[in-house]
Design a protein around this nucleic acid. Structure first.
Length: 105
DNA sequence: CGAGTGACCGCAA
DNA sequence: ATTGCGGCCACTC
């Protein structure tokens, strides 16, 4: 349940990311849309870097299902984090969005 | 307060 | 199908 409207965009993004279930992934654009700004996808990325490091940012990928470039440790770390959650990552650092993309209820 | 930046997305050639 | 470019908003310094 995502009902956190504390004015701050950053807060909403962090809230949504923290609600992503294990074994599921989400795209920056999707999160931006859920926050109310379909064009704030870049902001999500910015918040990901300066936001709460306690949140599962590794479950956040781009629309193509590709892993983020600025992830701490590189894509390699990102890929490993996803695999640790049971998510299958291809050698091209891509995940099956068709099945792993989490859809908020 | 102002300017720069960004882990993106969508469309056009 | 692949590559290149622009845009948009919020956050940080």
């Amino acid at each position: 349940m995502i009902v956190l409207t504390e004015g701050n965009f950053k807060n909403r993004v962090e809230a949504i990311v923290s609600q992503i279930p294990r074994g599921r992934v989400m795209s920056y654009g999707q999160i931006a849309i859920l926050c109310g700004n379909p064009r704030a996808s870049r902001i999500v990325g910015g918040i990901a870097h300066f936001g709460n490091s306690e949140l599962p940012w590794h479950r956040v990928v781009n629309k193509s299902g590709g892993l983020a470039s600025g992830f701490p440790g590189g894509k390699q770390s990102h890929k490993r984090a996803l695999e640790d959650e049971g998510i299958v990552v291809t050698s091209g650092y891509q995940v099956d969005m068709s099945k792993l993309l989490w859809r908020p209820q």
